[in-house]
Computed example of a mutant assay.
Amino acid sequence: MWIMAFHLVLSVSGVYSVKSTKDCKLLSHSPLQQKVLERLEPLVGKNFTAEDKASNESYTYVFQLCGDAGGAPNAGVIQVDKKAQKTTVIGKYTHTQAIGGSDWVMLIYTNGEKYDAHCNKEERKAIIMISCDRNVKVSKLEVGLEEREKEENCFYLFELDTSSVCPVIESKLSTGSIISTGSIILIIGFSLLAVYLVGGFLYQRVIVGAKGVEQFPNYAFWVEFGNLAADGCDFVCRSRKREESPAYRGEATDNLQEEPEERDDQLLPM
């Protein structure tokens, strides 16, 4: 109770607040870019760190999505020089661009601190390449490279893998909506059939006390139905014309034997 009240007070005072991708300020208002950012919602509020030991100087980089990286106000990516005890803002989330593909998102933070001697002293820029990896929720931040040997458009490149940007896998029941609907109907049908057979069997055996094939639910009906189906198939499928049975004309077969022929010669006088 006291912890909840403490968080509430901090939230109202502005010391503590819930972050979201809406805290990123896009350079140009674009619903498409906002949707790209929303794909990264699970990464909000987390600091990702990376060590760069490739150069003579050792730097630590901190990245946060739409939040203050390392506690630096408005900083999306910062560079920390531990030897010089200096923090440099590389890019701000208040100046954001978001570009997305089917399985990747490129996040660009601009308006960082200016270079001292490189890149014509332009403002620093951070590019975070976030790629799909279904095997990890979120990987460790990796330093790609720092491109600063140009006159302009210099940048820092970072790489991050996460399952958050992976495309949704469609149902494997079928490849099309029509086939998928048919598959669902078949599954429901087989499920109902299984319930009918198992439930009917238990009822016939436990309640009625049937034995043998009579345990099959509605055994008499299905036998009669089978006979009718066989007769119908025989009537439709056979090509040979069958003679109508005399029994259908109301005549018994026992009375159809030939009567002994009466010879007229017996009537003649001897």
Rank of each mutant, 00 (worst) to 15 (best):
Q204T: 08
W222Q: 02
C237G: 09
D231I: 03
Q215V: 15
D234S: 13
R242K: 14
P217V: 03
Y203S: 06
Y203M: 04
G199F: 03
N218C: 06
S239Q: 14
K211E: 13
P217E: 05
R205W: 14
L228Q: 15
Y219A: 09
E224R: 14
R240G: 12
V223Y: 00
A230F: 11
D234M: 08
G200E: 03
G212Y: 13
A220T: 15
E224C: 08
V223P: 00
V236L: 15
V236H: 11
S239I: 10
G209E: 00
F221E: 04
K211V: 05
R238F: 11
A229Q: 08
A230P: 00
F216Q: 05
E214T: 05
G226K: 06
C237A: 15
S239E: 13
L228D: 13
A229H: 01
R240V: 14
A229C: 05
C233V: 02
A230W: 06
P217I: 01
V223Q: 02
W222I: 01
D231L: 00
G200I: 05
Q215A: 11
V223G: 02
K211F: 06
N218F: 10
D234C: 07
V213T: 12
Q215Y: 01
I207H: 12
D234Y: 09
G199L: 00
V206I: 08
D234R: 11
Q215F: 03
P217T: 01
C233L: 09
Q204S: 03
D234F: 08
R240Y: 12
W222E: 04
Y203R: 08
Q215E: 10
G232A: 11
Y219E: 01
E224L: 10
S239H: 10
G199I: 03
R240A: 12
I207Y: 11
E214V: 02
I207S: 13
G199H: 00
P217Y: 02
F221P: 05
R240N: 14
D234K: 11
G212C: 04
S239N: 12
N218A: 09
K211Q: 10
G209V: 02
R240H: 11
E214P: 05
C233G: 02
V223A: 01
F201S: 07
C237K: 12
L202E: 12
W222P: 05
V208F: 04
C237W: 13
G232L: 08
Y203W: 07
A210W: 00
F216W: 00
F225V: 01
V236D: 12
F216G: 01
R242A: 13
G209M: 04
G200D: 04
F235V: 00
A210V: 03
L202G: 11
A220I: 15
F225G: 04
V208Y: 03
A220S: 15
D234H: 08
K241D: 13
A229F: 09
F221D: 07
E214A: 13
G209D: 03
V223H: 00
F235E: 07
A230G: 07
